[in-house]
Simulated scan of single mutants.
Amino acid sequence: MKSDQRPGLRAYDDSVRLAFPELVSQLREILGVRLVAYIGGVKSARSVSSWAEGTGSPGEVDQERLRHAFHVAGLLREKYDAATVQSWFKGMNPALNDDAPAHVLREVDPMKGARDLIAAAKAFAYIG
């Protein structure tokens, strides 16, 4: 069944509605534990596991970053496999001044970083 929704709308809805442990669990499946840990501001895979199990959680800003990462990852998964999405998050991106999207998410103000990342992801996935 083909959806007439705008590209990325489902990813956005899920990024807002999912309980945080479920969001982390799904994000970990797409990006891998190391990348989720990096975006979430921790070094330990154990921290990511505790977030996914609901026995711990990062600070509010890092939760926001991870929700934005989930939105972008979900948008890209509409077109690409998980390996391509991981590569996109790790690679130098010309739409982001050659910064890696994961780095932008971790280091830039979450709202500005998210806006730039969503625009770059839509351009990659739907414009070419």
Rank of each mutant, 00 (worst) to 15 (best):
P94H: 12
R106F: 02
A100T: 02
L117P: 10
K112F: 13
K112E: 14
D99Y: 10
V85I: 12
T84L: 09
K90R: 15
S87F: 12
Q86G: 12
R115K: 15
A121D: 06
A100R: 04
D99G: 00
H103V: 09
A95Y: 13
D116M: 15
R106P: 03
E107L: 01
S87D: 12
S87T: 09
F89M: 13
R106Y: 03
K90S: 10
K112P: 00
R115I: 02
R115E: 15
N97Y: 07
K122V: 00
W88H: 12
Q86W: 10
A119H: 13
M111R: 12
P110E: 03
P110W: 03
D109E: 06
E107W: 01
R115M: 13
P101G: 11
L96Q: 04
V85N: 11
L96V: 04
A114V: 03
D109T: 01
L96C: 06
T84E: 14
N93W: 07
A119Q: 10
D98R: 05
A120M: 05
D109L: 01
K90G: 04
A95R: 15
K122F: 02
H103S: 05
I118G: 07
L105I: 02
A83D: 15
D109K: 02
L105Q: 05
P94L: 08
V108K: 09
E107S: 03
A121H: 14
P101V: 01
T84D: 06
P94R: 11
M111D: 12
L105A: 09
G91W: 04
S87Q: 14
A119L: 12
Q86F: 01
V108H: 11
K90Y: 01
P94G: 11
D109R: 01
A120S: 15
R115T: 15
R106N: 04
L117A: 10
N97I: 00
M111Y: 09
L117D: 07
M92H: 04
D116C: 08
D116E: 12
A119S: 14
A95S: 15
L96I: 02
A121Y: 05
K112L: 13
T84H: 08
D116Y: 09
A95I: 00
P110F: 05
N93K: 09
K112Q: 11
A114P: 00
H103R: 15
M111L: 13
V85L: 08
A83L: 15
L105R: 02
T84P: 01
G91H: 02
A114L: 00
K112Y: 03
D99S: 12
V108D: 07
A121W: 09
N93Q: 15
A100E: 05
S87N: 13
M111N: 09
A102V: 03
F89I: 02
I118D: 03
N93D: 14
M111K: 09
H103G: 05
K112A: 14
I118A: 09
G113C: 11
A120E: 01
M92C: 06
